[in-house]
Design a protein around this nucleic acid. Structure first.
Length: 116
RNA sequence: UCAGACGGUUGGAUGGCCGCUGGCAGUUUCGACUGCUGGAGGAAAGUCCGGGCUCCACGGAAACACGGUGCCGGGUAACACCCGGCGGGGGCGACCCCAGGGAAAGUGCCACAGAAAGCAAACCGCCGUUUGUUCGCAAGCGGUAAGGGUGAAAGGGUGCGGUAAGAGCGCACCGCGUUGCCGGCGACGGUGACGGCACGGUAAACCCCACCGGGAGCAAGACCGAGUAGGGACGAUCAGUGGCUUCGGGCCACAGGCGGGUUUUCGCGUCAUCGUCCGGGUGUGUCGCACGAGGCGUUCGGUAACGAACGUCCCAGAUGAAUGGUCAUCCAGUGCCACCCUUUUGGGGGUGGUAUGGACAGAACCCGGCUUACAGACCGUCUGGCAUC
C-alpha cells in the first residue's frame, strides 16, 4: 500500500471540478476526470478540505483520514488514467473508519471508476 | 477542616497492525531499498509591541511634520515587557486594581437639572429697616450665604466662639498654598513656620514639555537556467564652464539632475533628461533554514527581575504543507440504574452494572514580550474562620 501521486496545483483541481462528475456520500465527496493520457498512466489524487469542516486541527485530521482511506482503497481498486479529487465534509471527522472505507468504495462504483 | 489569595507543574497511558518526514550509515539496476535515530505548543493562536536578519547604494547633524511612550529606581539587545519601590483606590486579611507628566503658557468644553457652571452671583429662605395693613402679612430698599432645593461638580471641611442674621469674622484640628529643616540616589515621606484660602473639573479635547522612532518584509533576498537587464524603439529638449590631451569627446575639476516624509547642511553614490510604446522565468530546484540574546544543571553576586563563571546537551524543519491513521485494553472524568453506609438528611460517601468519553488548539525565517482560548489533575506558600490539644 503506497500513497498515489498527488495533485498539487490549482489549475488541476479546477479541471477536475469542471467535468461535473461527482458522487456524494455522508463521509466524503469524490470528483472524477478521465485524463487524456489513456489507460496506462497512473491515477492521481488530490484533497480539498474547506474551512466549513472546522479549524486547522480538524481540517488536518480530516485530510489525514482521507489520505489513509485513499491509500487503501484507491491504489487497489481505482481504474487507471484518472484524476480524482476527494473533498472532506463535516462527517469526515465523526464517521467510523469502516463506514468511511465503505463510502469511498460506493463513490468509486457510482462514478464507474471501480476495478476489482 | 471550610472559605479564599498568590505562584508553579501537567495537558491521558500501554500494546498490535499500517504509514509520513529530516539526519546518519550501508546497498544500488540511480528509480529506490534496508538499518539506526530525531519529529508540535504553552499558548505553535491573535499578529498587538520590541529586536535579529535581508533588501531599498543611504552615513552624520539641525529644524519642521507625523507616530509612539509618559510617577521613581533598576533589569534587558530592545520594548508599550519584567522586578523593586512611591502615590491613589478597594478588601477584615493574604492580596488586588490604576492612560499615574503639565490645568498659575494659551484655547475650547462642562449636556440635563438648576437662580447661578467659572465670574462671580442669589430662587426658596434668614435678618434689619421703611411704607402699607383686614394685624395673618404684603411690597420696596439693604445685609447675608448657615439651612432647603438642582447637579458628577455650587468658591475649603468639622467643631467652638461670634452676630440683627450670618460669614475664615476669630480660634482649634484636618485639607490646601508658600517656605525652612530632616530622611531618601529618586518618586516621595516626616516636621516646623507663615498665609485666612487665592488656584473647580476635563489633557483616552486641542495643546505644552521630556524622551524614542527611516521604509518594506523570508512571497525579504541570493544562486541555477533558455536569453542581454544600468533592455530596446520612437519623439521632444539639452548635451554647460574650465583645464589636460596620445585628438578617441578620452580623462580631471566645477556646475547641474537624481537619491530616506519635507527643508537646510556636511559627506557619499550615481549620470544626458523627460514622455509614450514594446519585450521580458504566475517555473521548479538549491540556498536563506535552524548552534541560537539556545536548553538543562551547579556555584557565586543581587530583596528581585537578572547577571557571571563552570559543566553538559544538540533538541522539528514541512512547502496542496510531514510530525500520523486504525483497533484493543487500561486510567481519570461524566450520566443513569441497583444496593449499602452516614446524617450539616434538599446533602455526603462506598460497591457493582451499563452507557458515554478526552480542554484550548497544529510550527511555516528566528528570538524576547503582551493579549486571548483552555476539560481536568497535582504541588507549594500565605490569609481569615471553625474545631481540637
Amino acid at each position: 500500500m503506497t500513497a498515489p501521486v498527488r495533485l498539487k496545483h490549482r489549475p488541476e483541481f479546477l479541471k477536475v471540478a469542471a467535468t461535473r462528475q461527482k458522487s456524494v456520500t455522508p463521509g466524503l465527496i469524490v470528483q472524477k476526470r478521465v485524463r487524456n493520457g489513456g489507460e496506462t498512466t497512473e491515477t492521481r489524487v488530490g484533497f480539498t478540505v474547506s474551512r466549513k469542516v472546522g479549524n486547522a486541527v480538524q481540517r488536518n485530521r480530516a485530510k489525514r483520514r482521507l489520505r489513509e482511506v485513499t491509500a487503501t482503497v484507491v491504489t487497489e481498486h481505482a481504474k487507471m488514467g484518472l484524476d480524482l479529487v476527494i473533498i472532506g465534509r463535516a462527517g469526515t471527522l465523526k464517521r467510523p473508519y469502516p463506514s468511511l472505507l465503505g463510502d469511498m468504495k460506493t463513490a468509486l462504483k457510482k462514478l464507474d471508476a471501480w476495478r476489482d
